[in-house]
Each structure stands twice: as C-alpha cells, then as structure tokens.
Amino acid sequence: MSSRPPATHACRPLIGVGVGLRPAHYEAILQSAPRIDWFEALTENYLVGGGQPLYYLDAIAERYPVALHGVSLSIGSTDPLNLAYLQDLKELAARCHASMISDHLCWTGIRGINSHDLLPLPYHEEALQHLIPRIRQVQEILERPLVLENISRYISFVDSTFSEWHFLSELTRRTGCRLLLDINNIYVNAHNFSFSATDFIDGIPINAVEQFHIAGYSTQNALLIDSHDQSVSPPVFDLLAHAINRFGVKPVLLERDDRIPALSELTGELDKARQLLSDAH
C-alpha cells in the first residue's frame, strides 16, 4: 500500500444511514456530495498498492466517515489466522480513519483455499472454543473490538446445540466482540430454516449491537437468497424497526452489490431507514 500524508481529520462516529461504497458511485460521490451519512468500504478492494481504489477511498474518507467491512478474515476457519492480512487491515484502517472494522462470523476456506464465500459454522461448544482465542487475537492486533456480522446461510448442521442468536450472544459475552446485525440475513435465514426472526433479534443482548445492515433478497426455488440485487423488502424494513426498537438508534447500512443503481435511485430506501431512526428518537 502506498503511503500518504497524515490526515487532518480524526476517526468520526458512524451516525445515520450509510451506503456500501462501490466503484460505480465514486465520481458521483465526489462531484455531487450526496446526502449520505457515511460509507462502508469493502476491505479487500482497498488492500492494494495504489491507483484508483485508494485514490477514491482517500478522497471519500476526507469527506465522510468510513467503516471497513471485510470478507476474508475467515475467523471460523480451522486454518491459522492470516496475520499479514490483519496487519494490512490495521494499516488501511489507520489510513482511512475507519470508524469501525467488521467482518463476518464465518469461514471462507481451509488448506490455503479461499472460496470467497461466507460459509457457516455449526453452533456448538467446539466452534465457540475455536473462535474465542481467534477473536481475542484479532482484537489484540487491531487494538479495537472486532465487529462480527451474522451471515445468510443455506446449510445448517444437525449437531448445532445453540440457536444462531444464542451462539452470537455467547461470543460477545466471552470475547467482548461486537455485533453487526444484518437484518436481511436474519429474515432470509428465518424463512429458510423456519424460525422466528423476532426471536433472533429478541435473543441478542441489548448492548451488543453496533450497526445494522439492510439489503434485498431474491428467491431460488423455495429458498430466499441474500443477493443484494434488489430493493429492501417491506418485511425487512419492519424487522429493522423491531431491531431499532430493541437496540436503540444505531447506524444503518444499505447494501447493494449487483444491479447497482445510481445513488439517486437509493433515496427512497435511505429515507425510509432515516425515518425509522428518527421515529425512535
């Protein structure tokens, strides 16, 4: 990664409604300064030497608070932690004054392979015992709490002894890590595995949550797929309202990864999320 002069702004808190930073929006953000409260950058897109990605990240981080959201920490993998990746992540977070560093409660591969998918873990004590020292090590390296997101999943293991929300709660209690609740993922998993989405939310400790994600899903046969290629559905907004009611006002992030529209076309969803936060004040 190339060096840059010390920034003149400090790390700023995430407040309000943010949008996932995507290359398709780079120029529009710089030219029109849209009314978006903060941006979430996909960590791996910016772990590069230089060029356009870092140019735009630097420029946008000068104007907006930025959170880093990774997909390759692979905290649940039975391979060793990738310490070089963590060091690069720490440097990137310092560079853009990341207000938050998050990744997913998942594994992405073993034996040196990275599937670049967010694969689920069984929810049992062995998995907890595997995760706890790894989360602690990551937090020591990053010198801040790790924020973990609940993933969407399409497989579930028969030897799980915890519910997903009980498992997440235990992790936060035993490691001090924080949670990023992806409301769409809760909705998708609740549909696919026939549990109550509100039971999930109500089972998470009130003070464990740092942020909410919302996104759209698609359908594939009988399954809901967390595709991030649609607008946020009304039931997911309803669930977000339920989560805000339980956890209080937290930053909300609108994700879109496919069929990405112009920023102006996201206004309706952003306004709706803002209204939910405003109603809770």
Binding site: T78, R111, S115, S156
Partner: peptide, 24 residues
C-alpha cells in the same frame, strides 16, 4: 470444513451426504 469445501469446489458431496450433518 473439509467436507463442505470439497462439496462446493469439487462437487464431492459424498462425505457430507453419508454423515447426515446437514439439515436440508
């Protein structure tokens, strides 16, 4: 994790299927 990875990347679903570890 070995069984899941092999099933996804190499379509080797045998071990997962035989061990009945998945709900669906």
């Amino acid at each position: 994790q070995t069984a899941v990875q092999n099933a996804i990347i190499h379509n080797d679903v045998g071990p997962l299927h035989a061990s009945h570890v998945l709900v669906l």
